[in-house]
């Protein structure tokens, strides 16, 4: 297990390197330097600035300097927010984004699996069909469509919840979290239903039933874990999807999270900020995927066994 984890962890390095490289060179081939947008600067100031940001060095030097910086977790100053470093911006925005994202993924996991199991146990019934119809709708309605509609209905018309903003109070969290969780709930419900039905048809479930165990024990003890394995492996993509979803959600609900900074940065061509967020989220996704992988292996004795050999 430990050996496998280490190997998986080392396997992340090429991806990470690729991410850094792509991000770095994309920025560097971008038309115009970061200070071109400002009014024309006197040549000596330009040179000074370039020296300060090491833009006078060769591309390769800059690349390795940047790598070094990133490894020491320093994303440099923001071009746009002049008094802030990218690190400070991330430190400010991330806790908000994390709260929303984490709650949403937990919510999606529990609600999604429960709906999926409910549908699987009543396969081909009205309950099943309506749940799956809603799940399909949940998959098909984009975040940025459902969010304004919910705001319109629950905030503007009904006035139950705030239409946006963030004050760390529960009411301000409800809509963003629910909107972010909805597509994942739908996906997880579909996956759970499919795998649960498949597991319930497997021979070892028949064995368990033949033992005279009650159906609820059969499901909890024998069917639940194998049925949830596909959901666990979906958690990786789900997390990635939520992180990109958070970008649009934070914008719609005016939440001061990392995604908001990112979009602002992107629209203002704040290269260091954009790159910092891309790398930060890239690493986060990699690490979370790695953890999901470990969880999957831990839940699946067959994989554990294969690794031991």
């Amino acid at each position: 297990m430990a050996k496998h984890s280490l190997r998986r962890l080392l396997g992340l390095i090429p991806t990470l390197l690729l991410l850094l490289t792509v991000a770095f060179f994309l920025i560097r081939v971008a038309p115009g330097g970061p200070f071109d947008a400002e009014k024309a600067l006197p040549p000596e100031i330009q040179a000074n600035l370039n020296a300060k940001y090491h833009l006078d060095e060769s591309l390769l030097q800059q690349y390795f300097r940047y790598l070094g910086q990133v490894v020491s977790l320093d994303f440099g100053p923001s071009y746009q927010y002049k008094d802030w470093t990218v690190n400070e911006l991330i430190a400010q925005g991330f806790p908000v984004s994390l709260t929303v994202g984490l709650t949403a993924i937990v919510l999606a996991f529990f609600v999604g699996t429960m709906l999926g199991i409910a549908a699987a146990l009543r396969q081909n019934s009205t309950v099943d069909y309506s749940l799956m119809g809603f799940a399909m709708l949940g998959i098909s309605i984009p975040n940025f469509v459902i969010a304004p509609i919910l705001i319109l209905l629950l905030a503007v018309y009904a006035g139950w919840l705030p239409a946006g903003g963030w004050d760390w109070g529960v009411p301000s969290m409800v809509l963003p979290i629910v909107t972010l969780a909805l597509p994942a709930i739908a996906y997880i419900a579909r996956i759970t239903r499919g795998s649960m039905i498949e597991v319930l048809h497997s021979n070892f479930i028949r064995t368990a039933r033949a033992k005279g165990l009650s159906e609820s024990i059969v499901i909890r003890r024998h069917a639940l874990r194998p049925a949830l394995l596909p959901v666990i492996s979906y958690l990786g993509p789900a997390i990635a999807g939520m992180i990109s979803g958070s970008v649009v959600i934070e914008r719609i609900f005016s939440i001061p999270g990392l995604g908001s900074y990112f979009v602002q940065g992107a629209l203002n061509r704040d290269y260091t900020l954009v790159m910092g967020v891309v790398i930060f989220y890239g690493v986060l996704i990699l690490v979370l995927n790695f953890l999901v992988d470990l969880l999957y292996a831990w839940l699946n004795p067959k994989i554990r066994y294969d690794q031991k050999r």
């Binding site: 021979n203 070892f204 028949r206 064995t207 033949a210 005279g212």
Partner: peptide, 27 residues
């Protein structure tokens, strides 16, 4: 189902065809 479960496993035991898949691989 409940009445049947009092007999299944206790008084009537069944040995299934396929040994490779009849045991729960996760337990």
């Amino acid at each position: 189902a409940a009445e049947l479960n009092r007999h299944r496993g206790r008084e009537i035991a069944m040995i299934f065809q396929d040994p490779m898949t009849s045991l729960n691989p996760y337990l």
